[in-house]
């Protein structure tokens, strides 16, 4: 299980690096918010992996909260972009 945890961690790290590259590069604010949504999904995935490896359920609430936060964040930014004239 430890080997699996390391493999999953490495894959998630590469994915997060790619997403952060896109968030830094842009070119538009919508690309950034999309990339940060992916980063949030990757963080949730890492927490789920941690729960599996350590065998406790401390982070379960975060998985639910993360989807709420990501939803509110991307909708807010999308509205902001559309309304700006």
């Amino acid at each position: 299980m430890t080997v699996v945890a390391y493999v999953v961690g490495a894959i998630l790290a590469v994915a997060a690096a790619c997403a952060l590259y896109r968030a830094a590069r842009g070119p538009s604010i919508l690309d950034r918010v999309l990339a940060l949504d992916v980063v949030l999904a990757i963080i949730g995935a890492a927490l789920a992996t941690r729960m599996v490896v350590t065998g406790n359920l401390d982070n379960l609430v975060f998985l639910v909260v993360a989807s709420v936060v990501g939803f509110i964040g991307s909708v807010t930014v999308a509205r902001f972009v559309t309304d700006r004239k």
């Binding site: 299980m1 699996v4 493999v7 998630l12 790619c18 997403a19 896109r22 999904a41």
Partner: peptide, 23 residues
Amino acid sequence: DVVVAVLLISGALMSLAAGVGLV
């Protein structure tokens, strides 16, 4: 354990696909 490992790794590969696609 093997099932859990396969599920975790394929889930992580989804994230990797998203990262590569974003770039």
